[in-house]
């Protein structure tokens, strides 16, 4: 079971969280201005990263807040967690254990 650092509550077991999919996909402010292809890309197109993935988590059985995390999909190690709305943090290349 993953150990996930909630930016509000601290480290908690994965059991308390709900996965929220890829992060930093903003809903278009005026969806009507998008053509079908652009709208389909927003709706359905997601990366399938091998390596560092920016993703959303919700502390569903805790503070119930969404936040973002950088997780290495090859190791499941969390490299950073940050609050919704904050920019994706730069990583030092060392990486390492969570």
């Amino acid at each position: 079971m993953l150990l996930i650092q909630c930016p509000y509550c601290g480290p908690r077991p994965e059991l308390e969280f709900a996965y929220g999919g890829q992060a930093h996909i903003a809903r278009p402010l005026k969806p009507a201005d998008l053509n079908d292809d652009e709208w389909a890309a927003f709706l359905y197109m997601r990366v399938n990263t091998k390596g560092v993935h920016a993703e959303r988590w919700r502390h569903a059985r805790g503070c119930n807040r969404f936040f973002n995390a950088l997780r290495d999909t090859t190791t499941d190690h969390f490299l950073a967690v940050y609050k919704t709305g904050e920019a994706r943090p730069a990583l030092n290349t060392a990486g390492g254990h969570s």
Binding site: A18, G20, R58, A60, R65, F66, G85
Partner: peptide, 13 residues
């Protein structure tokens, strides 16, 4: 409820 929280927290803050 989760759906509502999602929009409220992440899209329409």
């Amino acid at each position: 409820y989760a759906f509502m929280e999602d929009y409220l927290q992440t899209e329409w803050s």
